[in-house]
Amino acid sequence: MAEDMNVSKGKLQRDLGLLDAVGIGVGAVIGAGIFVVTGVAAGVAGPAFLIGLLIAGFAATCNGLSLPN
């Protein structure tokens, strides 16, 4: 398989385009934002935040496990 891609064994090919770099940057900003918002919400809601997080996790699990028609 490595012969087909013209990549020598043990080395990775450096191939990162503009769209790839923008995608990594946007993903990092969104990922960091999720942690910041979660911390702020936990500070405001107090112990009830955990209950809300569990309910949201259950709803996300139901959505993820649902089958298309």
Rank of each mutant, 00 (worst) to 15 (best):
M1D: 11
M1Q: 11
M1C: 12
A2S: 13
A2T: 14
A2F: 08
D4L: 03
S8D: 14
K9G: 02
K9D: 02
G10H: 03
G10V: 02
G10E: 04
K11W: 06
L12K: 06
L12P: 04
Q13K: 07
Q13A: 07
Q13E: 11
R14C: 12
R14A: 08
D15F: 05
D15C: 15
D15K: 15
L16R: 10
L16V: 08
G17Y: 09
L19A: 15
D20W: 14
A21N: 09
V22G: 07
G23M: 06
I24A: 11
G25M: 07
V26F: 15
V26P: 05
V26C: 15
G27A: 03
A28M: 14
A28Q: 09
I30P: 03
A32Q: 02
G33H: 01
I34N: 03
V36W: 10
V37S: 00
T38A: 12
G39K: 08
V40A: 06
V40P: 04
V44N: 11
G46A: 00
G46S: 03
A48L: 08
A48P: 09
F49I: 06
F49K: 00
L50F: 05
I51M: 04
G52A: 01
L54Y: 12
L54F: 11
I55W: 06
I55H: 07
A56D: 10
A56Q: 07
G57Q: 00
F58R: 08
A59C: 09
T61W: 02
C62T: 07
C62G: 13
C62R: 14
G64Y: 04
G64C: 12
S66A: 14
L67C: 08
L67P: 02
L67K: 07
P68W: 14
N69R: 07
N69G: 09
N69M: 05
